[in-house]
């Protein structure tokens, strides 16, 4: 009898578990910090929608928003925090258990 992959549903981080937040965390794992327009383009969502999802990630201390200026233009940079990176790796591990790879 093959061993079924074991997983504990509570291991799935519901802060990350959503299409847009998942995409944001995936991009930030490779490019951090990323600018707001960059994330909008890469995730294929709207500014308002991205803001909502970033707020949730920021509340969990997974990302940190740095608001400043580039010349005279406002610029927001989104940093993946150390807590966020750990949570991301843990999430990936939980997903592997669920899918069974």
């Amino acid at each position: 009898m093959s061993r079924e992959p074991e997983f504990d549903i509570s291991q799935v981080d519901e802060v990350i578990h959503g299409r847009i937040r998942l995409a944001v965390m995936a991009y930030l794992s490779a490019v951090s910090p990323a600018s707001f327009p960059e994330l909008t383009e890469k995730t294929g969502t709207t500014n308002g929608n991205l803001s909502t999802h970033l707020t949730k990630l920021e509340s969990a201390n997974y990302v940190e928003l740095e608001k400043g200026y580039k010349g005279k233009r406002p610029q927001t940079l989104v940093h993946l925090t150390a807590t966020g990176r750990k949570a991301w790796l843990k999430y990936l591990s939980a997903m592997r258990d669920i899918i069974g790879v």
Partner: peptide, 20 residues
């Protein structure tokens, strides 16, 4: 979220991470 949807979302996230 169904298993198929989850796999699609993970594939999308992988593609985005690789692009970065």
């Amino acid at each position: 979220m169904t298993n198929e949807t989850l796999i699609q979302d993970l594939e999308n996230a992988t593609r985005i991470a690789q692009a970065g």
